[in-house]
């Protein structure tokens, strides 16, 4: 498997990131919750979620931010460093839905030997906007 890091000088404002599409199953939600050490029952126990008024278990926030970071570094590559990420939380994600992350470059700048890239992104599912966010990454710029 080969990995490529973006060349900062080639990044342009308006560049679109390749979408990240997650086919969300109960396994996806439970695996994410436990891997982030979040044992709140609403993320793995449907009976408990029902009793809380939710139609099903739903994705935890730490999975939202985890997928956001994967979406960014799948595009930017292994040398990229995420220095800031901010998400606003919206519609929930239940099993059986498809979650799609899209985003674009909003600014670039240079800071010493590093190139800085600002990205705006969102993740949508059948219920609407699940997260919207902004992030800052740095890339080696020689």
């Amino acid at each position: 498997m080969s990995f490529r890091t973006l060349e900062w000088a080639a990044v342009r404002v308006g560049d679109a990131l390749p979408p990240l599409v997650i086919d969300v199953t109960a396994t996806v939600i439970v695996a994410g919750a436990i891997a982030t050490r979040d044992f709140m029952p609403v993320h793995h126990d449907r009976d408990y979620a029902n009793a809380q008024g939710s139609p099903d278990i739903f994705m935890n926030i730490l999975s939202d931010t985890a997928y956001s970071s994967r979406f960014l570094t799948d595009w930017a590559g292994p040398e990229a460093m995420i220095t800031r990420i901010a998400v606003r939380l919206g519609a929930p994600v239940f099993p059986g839905s498809v979650l799609t992350y899209t985003g674009e470059v909003t600014a670039t700048s240079r800071s010493g030997a590093e190139g800085v890239v600002e990205v705006a992104f969102r993740a949508m599912n059948d219920l609407g906007e699940h997260v919207s966010g902004t992030a800052t990454l740095t890339l080696p710029a020689g």
């Binding site: 990995f3 695996a31 985890a66 994967r70 570094t73 799948d74 292994p78």
Partner: peptide, 22 residues
């Protein structure tokens, strides 16, 4: 964590590759 999110970034799990990065 990397398995749960299917994040294949090698700096998280590939010792040899990670050593070659910044």
């Amino acid at each position: 964590w990397a398995a749960a999110f299917e994040d294949r970034n090698p700096v998280y799990t590939d010792t040899e590759y990670a050593a070659t990065t910044r």
